[in-house]
Structures are given as structure tokens and as C-alpha cells.
């Protein structure tokens, strides 16, 4: 073996481990769980369940990823799914299947509104989107008078056509590709990274920071809306009325675990895929264990803390330097 190739090989793995720590975690977990529950973890049923879990996570987390790239936060995605479902329940008897468009349209309107309030009135996005989420939840419960209404007629959305592969998984691939394309290949994506990485620099480079922040929130709403079309049926085809913190927290874990830090500027949808995949495996592994649901929640919380620590460690610390 020549010296060149001998030097290259460890570098390659070292780089993966350094830049994508989540890949290492993923591989370790898959091996660990395969040994612990050797029959069950690699069974077709569990793999399908893992994919279903992945679909839920990725569709919820793709939208907020855009906003987090800019260093802001969007927690309204669950609200878009809930209130969108309630609107669908109202509209379906009137308009028929075309009512599904209510999700992306409502998502766009919601994102635009949040973006405008955030930028023009300078409300911090974390608390703003949390408030919006609670408002949407309240509206949902009022509209359906507290009952989880069934909205029939959309079963075709999730009907299988490849065995063992949930159909929503196929939809989510298309949605992911679109998101990755936007951040990696367009001017818009470049501007998002620029704002997240150095907002002052972006402003000096002549980028209308306010405008692109609004665009990011709108895109987030749009992707949450598109995702909710699939998720509505994927998660039961009823209007959700009970609010679960888990639904908000887990997609955020997927984003941060994947490598988009809370401060923005790095990561993106392509990294969120890794995060969602890894978290799905973690979750299924915990689910197969004998642990109580409460203990699982506790572990999930700890995972969030650890992934925030890992993601903020990645960036170079701008320490004091001597010229």
C-alpha cells in the first residue's frame, strides 16, 4: 500500500466522525439494539414501525429546519397540523378532496404572519411561535368542540403500494429532496446560511435580512403544511385535540441532533434526515425495552440536552486572539 492511500483512509473516517458525529451514534445504536433485541429489532415489523416514526419526525422537522438555519426558532408546526386538520374537517363536506390544499395555504399564511410579527415588531421567535402554537391549539379545540372528529375520505393517501414501505415515506422523500434542493442549490439557501452564520455580515453584503427572515418563516409554514397533508392521515385521519409536548420536542431533537445548531448557520434539511433517522432508531430501541413511557420521556429529554451540547461544541470558539 502506498503511503498516500494509507494516510487517506483514516482521514476519511476521522472526517466523518468529526463532521457527522450523528452518523457514528446511528451506527453504534443500530449495532447495539441489534444485539440487545436481535430477533425483534431487525424484524420487518419493527423496520416498518421505524420508518413510520421517521416519517412523522422528518415531516414535522423539515419546516422548522429552515428557520433554525437562520438562528431563529419555529415551534408552530404542530399548530399548523392541528388547526389545519380542524379546517379540513370544516371544508371537506363543502369542497371535497381539494380541501387538502388548506394545509399548505394555511401554512404559508401562518408563516408569513409569524415572520412579519417577528421582524417588524421584533418579538423573539421562540416565545412568539410558542404563543402561536398555543393559540392554534385553542382554536382547534373550539372549532371541533373538544371532540377528535374523524374526517373520512382520505385513506387513499396512506394506502400501501410497496409492501413494508409505508407510502408516506415515499412522499416524504419527495418533500425532503425539494427542501435540500432549496438550501443547497439556490440563492435563497445561500442567503439563509449567510444570515445564520453572520447576520451583520449578511446585512453589510447587501442582503435584506428582514425580508429573508420572513421568507424563511413562510417556507417553514409551507413545508409544515405540505407535511401535514401526509401526517394528517398518517397519524390517524382525525382532528387532533390533545396537545402533546412530545410532538413539539421530538422534531426539534431531530433537527439539533442532525447538526443544525440553535445558533444557525450550519446544518440544514439534509442533516435533519440523519437526525430524524437516528432519533427514530433510539426511540424504537427504547420502545422495545421494558422501560415505562415516563422513563422514556425522561431519556428523550436527556438526549435533547446532550444533542444541544454536541451541536454547540462543533463551531469554533471565537476566543481571544493576539494579532
Amino acid at each position: 500500500m502506498s503511503t498516500a492511500s494509507r494516510e487517506r483512509k483514516p482521514n476519511f473516517f476521522y472526517n466523518i466522525a468529526k463532521n457527522y458525529p450523528v452518523v457514528v451514534i446511528f451506527i453504534v445504536l443500530v449495532i447495539l439494539f441489534s444485539i440487545l433485541y436481535h430477533e425483534r429489532f431487525l424484524s420487518p415489523a419493527n423496520l416498518t414501525a421505524t420508518l413510520r416514526q421517521f416519517v412523522t419526525l422528518i415531516l414535522f422537522s423539515i419546516g422548522p429546519t429552515f428557520v433554525m438555519l437562520l438562528g431563529s426558532m419555529d415551534q408552530s408546526f404542530i399548530g399548523i397540523w392541528m388547526l389545519g386538520s380542524a379546517l379540513l374537517w370544516i371544508l371537506t363536506p363543502i369542497l371535497g378532496p381539494i380541501s387538502l390544499l388548506v394545509f399548505p395555504l394555511f401554512g404559508i399564511a401562518s408563516g408569513l404572519l409569524i415572520g412579519l410579527i417577528h421582524v417588524k415588531l421584533r418579538v423573539p421567535s421562540f416565545i412568539l411561535t410558542l404563543s402561536v402554537l398555543i393559540v392554534y391549539w385553542g382554536l382547534t379545540v373550539i372549532i371541533v368542540q373538544g371532540n377528535p372528529r374523524i374526517v373520512p375520505g382520505y385513506e387513499f393517501l396512506t394506502a400501501d403500494f410497496i409492501p413494508f414501505i409505508p407510502t408516506p415515506f415515499l412522499y416524504s422523500i419527495v418533500i425532503i429532496l425539494l427542501a435540500v434542493f432549496i438550501v443547497k442549490r439556490t440563492k435563497l439557501g445561500t442567503y439563509f446560511y449567510a444570515i445564520g452564520s453572520n447576520e451583520e455580515g449578511a446585512r453589510l453584503a447587501g442582503i435584506d435580512v428582514g425580508k429573508y427572515k420572513i421568507v424563511a418563516f413562510t417556507l417553514s409554514g409551507f413545508f409544515s403544511g405540505i407535511g401535514s397533508i401526509v401526517l394528517f392521515q398518517h397519524l390517524g385521519g382525525t382532528v387532533p385535540v390533545s396537545f402533546s409536548m412530545n410532538n413539539v420536542v421530538r422534531p426539534l431533537i431531530a433537527i439539533i441532533l442532525g447538526g443544525t445548531p440553535l445558533s444557525g448557520g450550519r446544518g440544514g434539511p439534509q442533516r435533519t434526515i440523519l437526525g430524524a433517522l437516528t432519533f427514530s432508531v433510539i426511540y424504537r430501541g427504547l420502545y422495545l425495552s421494558a422501560l415505562d413511557a415516563e422513563v422514556i420521556d425522561l431519556i428523550v429529554g436527556l438526549i435533547l440536552i446532550v444533542s444541544i451540547v454536541i451541536s454547540s461544541r462543533g463551531g469554533e470558539l471565537r476566543g481571544v486572539e493576539i494579532a
Partner: peptide, 17 residues
């Protein structure tokens, strides 16, 4: 510090403008 994107390559720092 204000002008440049420190963790970006030279290419991106020039093309952003």
C-alpha cells in the same frame, strides 16, 4: 469579523456579494 463569514470558504465569501 463583521465583514466575512469566518467558517465559510473563500469562494462563498466572494460570491455572497
Amino acid at each position: 469579523v463583521n465583514e466575512l463569514f469566518y467558517d465559510w470558504p473563500i469562494t462563498k465569501n466572494i460570491s455572497i456579494l
